[in-house]
Nucleic acid binder design. Structure first.
Length: 548
RNA sequence: GGCCUGUUGGAGAAGCGGCUUAACUCACAUGCCUUUCACGCAUGCAUUCAUGGGUUCGAAUCCCGUACAGGUCACCA
């Protein structure tokens, strides 16, 4: 009669290592007390999702604030869904947010002593553990075809029995080793299933860092741990990887809660210590009155690249995400007058349990704050960097005269309350086009108030062009404008104007508006003095004179 | 359908049995400031905490039912 040993050798003849070997190869980490080892473990199946960025950011923050280790692990076991190049894209985008792994998979090779960090390269590790389980009789080959599995499921559904491959429905669990060997030798395709010893009627308890004590039915399904392609399923890979990578805290989406009993069972049966779990809420969106997950297909904001392309500063998004993660963060930013997220102490306990609705308004708010608080030089660099990737027309303008451009985007920045015009870099061009003659010429001239006749406008604007002060301080310049306005029949003080509107052409605002229209082509603009100062005497004169 | 989780203003939320006439932030509205806009400042915006019942002198806060929402039941993660 054949033994488990015969089976194991037939299944995995190439595996010579044992679990003990692996334990030695990947020893416990020696880290300071309380240091957390976390990881972000995406599948390379497309671009970086906003929800993934959130998850990665939390894992990163948790590791960093505890002086721990943050890893990046590629879960590329689903070869059918893998999209070539997406892994590197994921890493690149994460890097833009400063989320750089201490250890993990990188485009130019792994970094760290607990690798490989790519599941497809860890097949031997998984097989070593599986061989061990086979030897112990805790796992077995299953020969059911997809059709046969479907039959079992149909039967269960028809009879209102809990669906799944478990207990009496785990057909191949009862095969003898001799039968198993015979089928393998006959070339029957197989997968490896884990022989669950769980009882569905019993509850299993575990502590979630965010949700507290959770109680779920124990798992009794003989889950597949190795697929027919020789690669592990998520459940098994998670347990093996996070054990041998010595992960201390697993942060993942809340969709994993129902399968956590499987993971805990696996850890327990393998004699390993399970990590702490933190099941993160998912970012949602309101769709016809219902909350739903951000969808890659329907929602542009589901892709991180959307924000990057629009020119949101990375920190703006990060600040927003942190405000969702820990709502006390917002108060912290106010009392600490800081938007430096890295100084804030994040806590799982302060996390909301249900998914927040993505709020573009709030993102814009934080992003404006971030941009307004960014030092001039740094802002200039960031905008140029963005333009070089995303906006040819803006880049052209920047390169024409860098100093000029820098002044434009930093208007009224040195004041106690700086302007907050831009939530994203793509807001810059529509707000500054008039600084560029080429664009200025393209725009139709905005009409002046009809109550002023042409001769008067010509005289007034001509006088302003020639006589207003250039290269002066704001008050000097404004005084000169006021004098000219007064000489042309405008009321300098609003009080005078209100007392006797008939006596004047208009109040000083009306005069300023005429100048503003002539110079900027719009009724609203940034501070006129600074605009004129930046445009320069020559250009201002030309515009005032051609306005008529 | 089974199981899990959740439900406080338009949004993020604080609150966890009396200090709450429900904090704070965003959005929105109005006003002030101002040469316009933006900034800033001020005020307003939930008589009510999904709903029905119970416990209690007292409930958003504790218990039960109902409704609604989300998640999950794969050789996908």
């Amino acid at each position: 009669m054949a033994t488990y040993n015969d089976l194991a050798e037939l299944l995995f003849p190439e595996i010579t290592k044992t679990i003990e070997d692996l334990e030695k190869e990947y020893p416990e980490r020696s880290l300071p007390e309380g240091a957390q080892v976390t990881r972000f473990a995406p599948s390379p199946t497309g671009f970086l999702h906003t929800g993934s960025l959130f998850t990665a950011y939390i894992a990163y923050t948790f590791a960093k604030q505890s002086q721990g280790v943050y890893m990046f692990r590629l879960e590329d076991t689903d070869t059918k869904r893998t999209i070539a190049g997406s892994a590197d894209e994921l890493i690149d985008q994460l890097e833009e947010f400063g989320i750089i792994a201490d250890e993990g998979y990188f485009a130019n090779g792994d970094k760290g002593a607990y690798g490989p960090y790519q599941q497809s390269a860890r097949a031997d590790i998984y097989k070593t553990v599986i061989k061990h389980l086979i030897l112990e009789g805790k796992a077995y080959p299953d020969f059911c075809s997809a059709e046969e599995l479907q039959k079992i499921r149909d039967f269960q559904e028809a009879n209102k029995i809990l669906p799944g491959y478990y207990g009496p429905y785990a057909r191949d669990r009862k095969l003898t080793v001799d039968e198993q060997i015979e089928k393998i030798k006959a070339g029957t395709p197989w997968v490896i299933r884990y022989k669950s010893n769980g009882d569905h009627n019993k509850k299993i308890k575990f502590k979630d860092s965010i949700r507290g004590e959770l109680e779920l039915a124990d798992n009794d399904v003989d889950i597949v741990i190795m697929k027919s392609d020789g690669l592990p399923t998520y459940h098994f890979a998670h347990v093996v990887d996070d054990h041998f990578m010595r992960t201390t805290a697993v942060t993942r989406g809340e969709e994993w809660i129902p399968s956590t009993p499987i993971h805990i069972q696996l850890f327990r049966d393998l004699g390993w210590k399970a990590p702490k779990y933190a099941h993160l809420p998912v970012i949602m969106k309101l769709d016809h009155g219902n909350k739903r997950k951000l969808s890659k297909r329907k929602d542009p904001e589901a892709a991180v690249s959307y924000f990057l392309k629009a020119g949101y500063p990375a920190r703006g998004l990060l600040v927003y995400l942190m405000s969702i993660a820990n709502s006390n963060f917002e108060e912290w930013t106010i009392t600490n007058k800081s938007l430096d997220v890295s100084k804030f102490t994040f806590s799982f306990k302060k996390m909301a349990l249900d998914g927040a609705l993505f709020d573009e308004n709030k993102l814009n708010y934080f992003s404006k704050e971030v941009i307004a608080a960014t030092p001039k030089e740094e802002l200039f660099k960031a905008v140029k960097e963005w333009a070089s990737k995303n906006s040819e027309s803006l880049l052209k303008k920047i390169e024409m005269d860098e100093e000029y451009f820098s002044k434009i985007i930093n208007i009224e920045k040195d004041r106690p309350n700086p302007r907050k015009d831009y939530a994203k870099y793509s807001d810059i061009e529509p707000a500054t086009w008039f600084f560029y003659d080429e664009d200025f010429a393209k725009h139709d001239a905005l009409p002046f108030d009809e109550k002023f006749d042409k001769d008067f406008l010509k005289a007034f604007l001509g006088e302003v062009a020639d006589k207003q002060l250039y290269n002066a301080t704001e008050s000097e310049w404004w005084n000169s404008v006021k004098e000219l306005a007064a000489a042309n029949g405008f009321a300098v003080s609003n009080k005078d104007y209100k007392a006797n509107p008939e006596a004047f052409k208009g109040n000083i605002s009306a005069a300023a508006e005429l100048i503003r229209i002539a110079v900027t082509g719009q009724k609203d603009s940034q501070n006129l003095h600074e605009v004129i100062d930046i445009l320069g005497e020559e250009r201002v004169k030309a515009r005032l004179k051609s306005a008529i």
